[in-house]
Amino acid sequence: MRKIGLFLGCNIPLRRPDIEYSMRYVLNKLGVEIVELDGATCCPAFGIMPSIDLVGWCAGSAWNMAIAEEKEVDIITGCGSCYGSLNEARYHMEKHPEIKEEVNKILGKVGKKYEGVVKVWNFYNYIYEEIGIEELKKKIKYSLNDIVCGTQVGCHNLWPSKAYTSNDDNVFKPTRMREICEAVGGKAPWYSTILDCCGMGALGSLAKEKSWALWRRKVSKMIEEINPELFVTGCSSCLLRYDNDQAQMKKGGLIDFEIPAVHIAQLLALVMGAEPEKAVGLAEVPIDGIITKIKGGK
């Protein structure tokens, strides 16, 4: 039986645990045993330790990766920032053994050690490579019934490609997320602003209005070109922007549309038959129409 260490991060367990529920549901349905990474922490996020000290960042990430190594599992995460921070730290330590040595001195003080053997997956690459599209199709209870999905892969899921051991073949023309949406019965066309950043994160904290405008610019093009019925994100931070922030923008009269949004794990949980109250129970943009359309299928 396959095993994987579920790395939660911050936003997934504490702000959108419906994504955590969905990740657990999907992995369980796919026959993957979830190993809890007891005592894992924030990745650490780019705005904290990485912005203070390189060795401190690597020590923080190595703490998390060492927990997985002790349990002899690789890591899966649904958050782009966690995926980026852990993988970049892993890459820095691999390229600079002196950093790894310093990190192990720090970890050694509390009886921990980082070997550097753990692989850090993001959710959709794990599904795509380890499970495979054909195997995934066998586990689907409902079809998306041609729902048009506007996909948002997430910056950290693609770049810096040197730090990642799994990725799309062309990181400026990603297809994996779209292939997964289509494998479960959706339509996921390319659109011209597909690579643009959602603006969530540091930019949102420093300049909220500008970052919201960045998202609106991206999404208005997307609507014009493919008219999506559902946004699907590969990253939990992107979901906060596409769902929670979208709801705020609608309330504030800044947008005239209302398009539900899910994380790719939530999308798969829904088509595999998860209870919507749990899989998307914290969605702020109304999503009932999508649930009805999914359940009206096969």
Binding site: P13, G56, K109
Partner: peptide, 21 residues
């Protein structure tokens, strides 16, 4: 969650680790 937030022993150890950074 099963993270350091819900695990006091590991949280204390984590803080000890950070004191060495």
């Amino acid at each position: 969650p099963p993270t350091a937030l819900g695990n006091e022993e590991m949280r204390k150890k984590f803080q000890e680790m950070l004191k060495n950074t």
